[in-house]
């Protein structure tokens, strides 16, 4: 439903996202989002979250960049994987537990967005989906503009439905992982991603 979004709500989202150190890009369609993920992975510098700052020395051979997207539909994942493999990325769709040392980038799709807090609502009942958004250095989250609302109360019906299920894990994510526990200095990437990008979809 493009065009239904109140421009003031979009502006609010953009302002709050900036305050929450979220980078926002707007693209036409989901294929553009896939391309954005490929470019973001190309740009990714591995090992920023390691204490030493540099990449670990691989035991053998060249270390490949990693792009995880377990929550995408098979069709979309195949499109991503094809492009990623062409770039020699290691593509990950399952078994995220094997990658707890970290992956470079993850791509997922939000169910809804809340403008007043720059929040993305993600359903991640499957362990792999949850881990992908936590163990990556850069988290890319797609949000169709039609799913953006001004307040959290407007997402209540959706949440009630989700929480009403037999089992469910739904997350509000409003920026990269952060802490201010040492001398109140804001530091990103303490347990989760160092950076978060929202890819706003027109369609």
């Amino acid at each position: 439903m493009p065009g239904n979004l109140d421009p003031a709500t979009l502006d609010l989202f953009l302002a709050k996202a900036k305050a929450a150190t979220i980078e926002v890009v707007a693209v036409e369609n989901i294929h553009n989002a896939v391309d954005y993920a490929i470019e973001a992975t190309k740009r990714a510098e591995f090992g920023k979250l390691l204490p030493t700052g540099g990449p670990p020395k691989p035991a053998t051979g060249e270390r490949r960049k990693t792009l995880a997207a377990p929550a995408l539909s098979q069709e979309l994942y195949d499109e991503l994987a094809k492009k990623g493999e062409a770039e020699n990325f290691e593509m990950i769709r399952s078994g995220l537990r094997e990658y707890l040392a970290g992956v470079d980038v993850s791509l997922t799709i939000a169910s809804m967005g809340i403008a007043e807090t720059a929040t993305l609502i993600i359903e991640n009942e499957r362990e792999d989906d949850r881990l992908a958004t936590m163990i990556c250095e850069t988290s890319l989250i797609v949000l169709p503009k039609s799913k953006l609302f001004k307040t959290s109360y407007e997402t209540e019906a959706f949440l009630n439905e989700a929480l009403g299920r037999e089992h469910n894990y739904t997350s509000f994510i409003s920026g990269p992982s952060r802490t201010a526990d040492i001398e109140r200095v804001l530091t990103l990437g303490v347990h989760g991603p160092l950076a978060m990008h929202v890819i706003l979809l027109e369609e």
């Binding site: 709050k16 362990e127 997350s171 509000f172 989760g192």
Partner: peptide
Amino acid sequence: LRIIQVLPRNATAQAITTYVSWITGSTNCE
């Protein structure tokens, strides 16, 4: 949701905490 509007604002002057997790039932664990 109502409490979340005040809790992080009061705690650390943030609009919301970075993560809010809603857990229902016994969830997937590999």
